[in-house]
Nucleic acid binder design. Sequence first.
RNA 1: GCGCGGUUAGCUCAGUUGGUAGAGCAUCUCAUUUACACUGAGAGGGUCGUAGGUUCGAGCCCUACACCGCGCACCA
Length: 749
Amino acid sequence: MDPKFLQPYNPKEAEPSIYTRWEESGYFNPDNLPPLNGAEGQKERTEAFSMVLPPPNVTGILHMGSALMLVIEDILVRHARMQGKRALWIPGTDSAAIATQAKVEGELYKKEKKTRHDLGREELLSRIDTFVKESEKTIVEQMKHVGASLDFSRYAYTMDDRRYHAVMEAFVRMYNAGLIYRGSRIVNWDPKLQTTVSDDEMDYVEESVPFYYFKYGPFVIGTVRPETKFGDKYVVMHPDDARYKEWKHGQTIDLEWINGPITATIIKDDAADMEMGSGVMTITPAHSQVDFEIAKRHNLDIEQVIDDRGILLSIAGELAGQHIKKARPLIIEKLKAKGLIEKIDEKYIHNIATNSRGGGIIEPQIKKQWFVGVNTEFEKNGKKTTLKKMMQEAVESNAVEITPERYEKTYFNWVNNLRDWCISRQIWFGHRIPVWYRNSGQQSVDSEQATPGRIRRDHATETDAEEMCVSIEKPEGEGWEQDPDTLDTWFSSGLWTFSTLGWPDETKDLKTFHPTSILETGYDIIFFWVARMILMSGFLLDEVPFKKVYLHGLVRDGQGRKISKSLGNNIDPLDMAEKYGMDAVRVSLIAGMAPGTDSKISEEKIRGYKNFANKIWNISRFVLENGGGTTTDAPYTETDEALAREADVLAKHVSEHIEKFRIDIAFDLLYHFIWHRFADEILEESKPILKGEDARSKSSRQRLLYYILTLFLKLLHPFMPFVTEEIWTYLPKKETELLLVAPWPEARG
RNA sequence: GCGCGGUUAGCUCAGUUGGUAGAGCAUCUCAUUUACACUGAGAGGGUCGUAGGUUCGAGCCCUACACCGCGCACCA
């Protein structure tokens, strides 16, 4: 007996060398996996199993949430590998364009008091590159620490050359199919980061602000944003509102407003809510989504009031040039002086839209942006369809199955209401849009055909070039300039299942591993990511990106509270692994976690599972000390035959639950069988038999104990890979040198 | 406003076609050089959110309500 085995299990000492042995075997790469040893001799692995790791942001460090994801996926892939499949799990990291640039810019300002404009595009990108490389190293180390059996030879980064190529190709193909267009739309503009933000990337922060009621001619209008009101010259009310039935649509009235007398036009539109305030509102189409739509419906003028940096434009008269924040009280003063304030409600609860990627308060602006048309018809296999329809059909037809099922409803709810997807971002770090413009020098003031009415801007920052060319390479000839914008990070993420496999080249990997078997991810990115992958794969490859989606929840503390800095309840997975071993951390995360529900973790829970790791260590020692593995062909007694079948039944149930994604139940069954059935009962009952005189009973029991030991080591390996692999090295008789590739127990019984 | 979850032991949660309420932790009692104290045996503790309904029988199915959480929309 190895003296190490006589000590309690020491995960800290064992874990690093075990991971090294796995890596050196090369088995994380399915191309290196050994053939299977079956009853009929050696057999090639035919069935493929593939999965991509949802690439963590390069800005991130490992937290319990990412650890949970790694653990669930590692369990699935280890199980598939042991089942004899060609199991592939692809690692990668995501550039997280806005977040990363914001982080680097933040540090730049903190350390050097410089902005990105002081550095210039190239220098900033090189700084980001340095940051990313450093961060990447840490992330990969952490993944290995968790025990993730990822194939690092296929490591992908959203900004590397292969992925760049895929993104460009995708853009050009979609443009040529008429699915990508440029247009002036109202977008969520972040004045702080100077970029567009997608609908899904906004956070709403509740704030108590004054709500102002102004006299607007004969009407009373309400607002929390007086600074937008300068240009308001349309007054909107519901067509059915009896209070205002004497007013006719299109009728004009003269009234006194902020900067003097104006003429306002009455507009009747359903968008006005009769229940709300006075039922009358004025609109600011250039800075509000809803107002913009009303303006479009009635072909109204649209005038910009606030510029990209939050500064009032000339329409504000004497307040022009002021920042909106400073201007607000001044406007109130002016209106007060004119007697136009009806009343002020000081404690109005208002939701302020902010950029969730570390930016500022969103100011809707009209911008020329690139969009993916989700309702644009195109032909696929001789059939007319739209991207939206494709996304609906993929799930409706069960080509993609979502677990837990209730999230299908959430998915449809989102897809059905999907608007065109704005994919351009005004940041420097990202995939630059492959569009080129050439001008003969004449600058035209922006006038947009697609938008009815007149759009007037004081600062024409965008120009319409005479020539435009969409191509990956710079076109021939002089004077071409590339669009300065970059693509939404989810545009490239949408390609992930196949860009990681070599698309657009027709690689062997792509043929073997796509569509991927499972996409496992958090329920919080079902819209951002899951839906967009279905869109991209559907259009570009004419197939689904994955057959199954499995959604997991958030990690919470022992009392079910969210992990937050203010609560100080953050538990660092690596600290915990240092104290209790990674196996204990792994199973703490998945034990008691039903699909789609949140997982609870606490130090006590982790400690409990450390004891479990030690328990199996001791069970193994007991079995080996008592002659386990010496008599594997002794005939079973009747009792032992029954006990062996009982263990087989357990194996069958464990397998079934893993297949159904109930890894929590699978683990629970194992835990109870090993500790309370095998250790507490079977081993205790074995003591007299092993010490007794009956040679037949003894050899039968030795065979049985060894049989159950190897069986549960295999079953437990996906969950607790380190301790099981370590014990495996001490076994005298085994089918494979590494437990990593040992054959999964076949369902019997 | 629309939608989705949840409400079961002190705490955190299981409970798969309806058939006598379960686990872990915590608490209490007992055992004690044992493969393992990182242990074992046992005990206490629940009107399953509320009110109705279906059923021979409901934690589970139906209806309404309450509270908690989440998502989407709105926010003049």
